[in-house]
Simulated assay, not measured.
Amino acid sequence: CFNEPWPTAANNSIVAYPAIPKKAFEAVADSCRPLCASARLSKFTWFEGEYFEAELWILNDCVTDKESLKVTAELWAVDQKLSSLLWETGKVKSQTNIRGITLRQQLPAMETDKLYLRLSVENFPEYNSDYTLIYRRKSFTAFRTHVMNLTE
């Protein structure tokens, strides 16, 4: 539902009466961008010692070609940069998705519960994408394995 035609107490719309954008409006607008940097992730929860992997993509729904883009991928934990890389896409043809390179990083022991992946496109901040992921310590992994063994 896009908007509410009259005042209501609750609804799933993204625009409240009378034409007041709700918090979700910007998120929906971002998801409808005609061109963006994107990451293909196999999961959203990562454990200490695992190799984090994010396959980079450019998603282009524009009707025109774009010149080569420079995409920087950075993996962060709180204020610590864990990894970064630069990908030059080459020409981006209209209505074409381009598979790029893969960011890989073994995850160290850290005192945090979140990882942040930031994809930045040089000179085009409107193409940027951000991801917030879950991080778990090895002790949690051992507990999870123990519980799984008990249920089998």
Rank of each mutant, 00 (worst) to 15 (best):
A37M: 05
E50I: 08
F52L: 04
E122I: 06
L56Q: 02
L119I: 10
F2W: 15
F52A: 08
V15T: 13
R137A: 10
V78D: 06
Q106A: 09
Q95A: 10
G90W: 01
V71W: 01
A16V: 03
P34A: 04
R40S: 13
A29G: 02
E55K: 14
F44M: 15
R40M: 06
N128Q: 14
T64M: 09
A37G: 08
S38P: 08
M110G: 04
S31I: 11
N60G: 10
V28S: 10
A54E: 02
K138F: 11
F47P: 04
D130M: 09
F44E: 14
S83C: 07
T112N: 03
E111M: 08
P108E: 05
E111G: 02
W57Q: 08
A16R: 06
N128I: 10
V28Q: 07
S38T: 12
T102E: 02
G100V: 00
T45P: 00
T96F: 01
L115G: 00
E50D: 05
Y131T: 12
D113E: 03
S83F: 00
K23W: 03
W6M: 07
W87K: 03
V28Y: 14
D30S: 06
L86E: 03
E26F: 09
T112D: 01
F124A: 09
V15I: 15
T102R: 11
E126T: 13
K66R: 11
Q106L: 05
D113G: 02
K114W: 03
A24M: 11
L35Q: 07
F44Q: 15
L75G: 02
C32W: 11
W76D: 01
V15K: 04
L35V: 15
